[in-house]
Design a protein around this nucleic acid. Structure first.
Lengths: 328, 328
DNA sequence: TTGAAAGCGCTAACAA
DNA sequence: TTGTTAGCGCTTTCAA
């Protein structure tokens, strides 16, 4: 493990001062063109690589961003993480990824560690709509994704409209007796989509049941009971993973989808395309959310002290095989 | 954005020297118990947080690990990434995650950036069995996952045995006419499982076809043709994603799985549990691979100049609904 | 345009 | 046990 070449050594071999070497490498200061070229050539030859830590102690900037999210294996997040990493790289930032495992203590700890590492900014998908780490994040530019936290800029999808779009689709197919299986309602983004959906069902049809299930393909007894007993011709689920569970249950009971009953989900996770039938759902603008979040956090880092904003991005209905005309 | 408290300020307010403050915070050196407590209390009150960059310039260690992988949205990786992040945290390391998008230039670039950031170690899942970045990684402790690269320690699953276990399972069910759909064979781990599987089929049954497909649920024409024309009673796929595509295709042709034909995959991605029928497959020891990789890289970082090792972890057959007795 | 030198916040050898 | 002090590698002000 040969010791790394320092700027000083580059300067010495190039026969220039440390300052000039620094100027050349960073394209700062003013340097004669041939001198700069010469220094860069020497640096190249010696295999010089910047020491970001040292640079960071001087500049106070690390060129890093922390991404904090609840659970990488939840199908929603890998795509988000990938997009954040890519957008950040495009701006020259590297990303610390932290998985909080849905545990608030770990979340607080994660934010503390990232603060200590001196991340320039944070993209944070909180476990719940609660700021578990006010203190740790208070002096770091932070963008919250998918949640709303006091005093923090956020990027969200238009959940309410998404919920309505799902119901509108069912209504257009002639469905009137509609059931809703919501995800955990302690999360605002979930409440938004379900409440909006429920309101529209009530206005133009009949809400035959509205129950809740955890983010799981396994259904609670209360949910299966609702599905079995209430004669809905269509079901809206607050999350695709739940919708898939519903489809599985209905099919196991001998129902044909969408012949007997239609199902629509929310999120457009990858599985939605591989189920039988494929799942009609509401697509989240994940890439847009990721780039919006990264751009926003970098904008804050680079100083343009933006107003506190809330960016709301459009969702879209994706019609697939799990919805069809109401049976008679 | 209030300026961060420095150790110097802590020392001053606590009325001690900078060194003592450092000792207290790092639990190094020798310090009277009450003095240490006092300093820590002051640090706490002031909201002191270490500046890891400064620390790193002095110690030459950043307490960070780089994780480099081809594609976070590939269902295999989120779990791996999560496990790596968790194991690393348990050891006090933070993880830079980089997605190389399956592009070798980006991979090289990613490794260069991580080297520049001074990561203490690298956990690297290369795109192919080729070291695209010899130079960038040569002086950083590196563990390669799932591939074999010259001069680098690696962690792998026992692919050959996994392939054999899948075939053994089919043979035990009475199948003799078996087809194989391999994944991209330019990857050693894929070749291993398929070759071992093929050898066993040839030895104890009849290999009715052996074709190749990309890592995709969509099948090449050559694959669908093989499936349709060769009267296999069972198919082994080199990857679950391909197995799911095969199931979809067969079902679309009117075949019943496993009544008419059995399908077994490889990887045990999450979807394998949600398909209809659920997919019999070979489980990869992902968590073990992740912790083995992290432990190994940390062992190297902390100096125990291990011999160059190759760790091979066991795979396991997971029997689900897509395999059954041979039809007559 | 170039260089000398101060100092970022911290650790650790050495002295007291 | 505690303090003094010399740097780690770098950027940046200031003077030449």
């Amino acid at each position: 493990m040969a010791r790394r070449i320092t700027l000083k050594e580059v300067a010495k071999t190039a026969g220039v001062s440390l300052a000039s070497a620094s100027y050349a490498v960073n394209r700062t200061g003013s340097l004669g063109e041939e001198l700069r070229q010469h220094i860069l050539r020497v640096a190249e030859e010696l295999g010089y690589r910047q020491n970001m830590s040292a640079r960071a102690t001087r500049t106070g900037r690390t060129g890093t961003i922390g991404l904090v999210l609840p659970d990488l294996t939840n199908p929603f997040f890998p795509h988000l993480a990938q997009s954040v990493v890519q957008r950040a790289r495009a701006h020259g930032y590297s990303v610390f990824v932290t998985d909080t495992e849905g545990v608030e203590d770990l979340e607080r700890e994660a934010l503390r560690v990232l603060a200590e590492r001196g991340v320039d900014g944070l993209v944070w998908f909180p476990i719940r709509d609660v700021n578990t780490a006010e203190a740790e994040t208070s002096d770091i530019p932070t963008i919250v994704v998918d949640r709303t936290l006091p005093r923090l800029e956020s990027v969200q999808a238009d959940y309410a409209n998404g919920g309505r779009a799902a119901i509108r689709h069912l209504l257009d197919l002639g469905h009137r007796r509609i059931g809703i299986v919501c995800g955990p309602t302690d999360i605002a983004s979930m409440r938004d989509r379900c409440d909006a959906a429920a309101a529209l069902v009530r206005a133009e049809g009949e809400l035959v049941f509205m129950v809740e299930n955890s983010f799981s393909i396994d259904l609670d007894g209360s949910v299966t009971r609702a599905l079995d007993q209430n004669g809905a011709t269509a079901v809206f689920a607050g999350a695709d993973i739940i919708a898939l569970g519903i489809m599985r249950h209905l099919q196991a009971q001998g129902s044909v989808i969408p012949g007997d009953i239609s199902v629509v989900g929310f999120d457009d996770i990858p599985w939605a395309q591989m189920s039988t039938p494929t799942l009609t759902t509401i697509e989240m603008p994940i890439e847009d959310m990721a780039s919006e979040a990264v751009e926003a956090v970098i904008r804050r880092i680079e100083g343009s002290a933006d107003l506190r904003r809330r960016v709301i991005l459009d969702t879209a209905l994706v019609v697939r095989g799990s919805t069809g005309p109401v049976p008679h």
